[in-house]
Design a protein around this nucleic acid. Sequence first.
DNA 1: GTGAAAGCGCTAACAA
DNA 2: TTGTTAGCGCTTTCAC
Lengths: 343, 343
Amino acid sequence: MTLKELSTLLGLSPTTVSRALNGYPEVREATRARVVEAARKHNYRPNMQAKRLATGRAMAIGHVIPATSRHEMVNPIFSDFLSGASEIYAEHGFSVNLTLARAGDQERTYRELHAQGAVDGIILHGPTMNDPRIAMLQDLGLPFVVHGRASGIDLDYAWLDVNNVRSFARATDLLVDLGHRRIALLNGLEQMDFAHRRRIGHEQALQRAGIACDPALMLSDEMTEDYGYRSALALLDRPDPPTAFLVAAIIPALGVQRALHDRGLRPGRDVSIICHDDDLSYLRNGGDLPIFTATTSSVREAGRRCAALLIEQINAPDSPKPQVLLEAALTIGQSTGPAPRRS
Amino acid sequence: MTLKELSTLLGLSPTTVSRALNGYPEVREATRARVVEAARKHNYRPNMQAKRLATGRAMAIGHVIPATSRHEMVNPIFSDFLSGASEIYAEHGFSVNLTLARAGDQERTYRELHAQGAVDGIILHGPTMNDPRIAMLQDLGLPFVVHGRASGIDLDYAWLDVNNVRSFARATDLLVDLGHRRIALLNGLEQMDFAHRRRIGHEQALQRAGIACDPALMLSDEMTEDYGYRSALALLDRPDPPTAFLVAAIIPALGVQRALHDRGLRPGRDVSIICHDDDLSYLRNGGDLPIFTATTSSVREAGRRCAALLIEQINAPDSPKPQVLLEAALTIGQSTGPAPRRS
DNA sequence: GTGAAAGCGCTAACAA
DNA sequence: TTGTTAGCGCTTTCAC
């Protein structure tokens, strides 16, 4: 069923039918009612390709995710983010164009998406420090919103980020307040901007507390179980082992826990662990993990807000670039076991 | 840069340019060379919307994933699957239309995608027993391939599945060979077809070994850490605790491990655990987990193969429906710690 | 081997 | 308030 067919069926012009269906005000209400009813009855759905071509709007948002070197943030975070964003897209009739690009192919991918007219805007995921994609997208003139930020880039672009510095400072504060002086930081890859900021927050808190930063206690890698396990073992076997671990995600925190067991230590009793994750929901942990846990944000909500910002940018490209810093919804102890011991 | 602009630039008709670029044979090679070169030089990219409208092909594949009630299989599995599929799509010029649908909205979503002409075909994820979507897609006449199968549906449709029955039978065989008689099964939600088949495989192996099935040892739920932890605690506190656990995914297996620690038991020594997962890669575990691990399949490879099957179906809708059963690439002990003890 | 013309299904001036 | 007309950028008969 096409517009034309529907219109002849109704004895109207395609134009009127189009206007009626798209909510233009100049259509008589009686006519609109007839049209809408007929459309419903015949199960009419406008052909999106035609609509896109005629309006010059793709009505699609591009999400490009890196494929091969899987940064830990993509896998668990991405689907929650997308789930939130999709809610908003659906309300506005946008669909999602998902593209996986190998590490080096990302820029080319954005260029193609734009040149083909496949998308009206882009969400930039996983910004690194000095991320070159930001300048590139600005050159292209394609609206975009960054989920996160890029240190070292001094351009006026739209972003939404969580206050990672403060989150990790507060987590460190808590451990310090509990009496810990030797705290290990198991961070993500520090070329990722969020990981970089988290380290800064940690260091700031240590400094405020008058504790010297020990580089040997600060590790950075992809956040796997094995990373947590091996790092914790190595640290625990030092002559001066840490009494607490601040871990940037739940999976490596589980590895730390395993290492403690191996060494006969009790998590939450002999050694404290704070797992400071973006979103723990994918583990759906009920509440017994002997690990201090703290979520920095709801990724789903971030998805919703980024989507809204982007649609705003698309509809009014010359409006100022919104820059949103979310304070972490820091729910320390949300699923806490025994309290960490003072050391 | 549009086709028309490019053609006037070359002093040719749009038709010829189109033919040259799309590899039609009737173009003189010299002409084609000129055209291709000019296109490259001016960075010409055909507008996809126009192409789609003119050809009537969306050049897009639909992936619909359930949003709210997040079955455990979606989150970790999905992005790997998509990564494999995307490789193939890219080779054939298809893009991915990703839609998140709430549990009840799935059918409507498929219908809309089809009516709008937004996709040429669909990959059906996470089939349940008697999945109603299969009959619906067949009615629509939209090409589709199911990743998995649906017990209870007797239609001729294309699918690709792993031999879950045999995988779990073999895992059970191994435990039985090691001397275990009381084996707990921590399965996924059994409305999911794959979970249902896994239970069958487990039961078959027990029966062959002359071991009675104890329903109290067979659990089924979403595969969270907490599920593994609580279930294992409860089972271990019974008067006749199991000596081995067969767990359908790594996350709950980590929970089982934690429960063992709580009870002073050593995983891999006092009690055996086999984690039998579709794909452990998202944990990227190095090899020290004191858990027997077995991967049933490479999800990425499944994505590649499903994509290829679907494209085949799209290009030749009346060809027979391929039905592919992959034998599990069962690498038991791939990352094994100490051997399970005989009990 | 190349081009002219029509059309894919829709929207958007401009008229009426 | 409704209709006419002309595209959006490409493909595809059908002539030449």
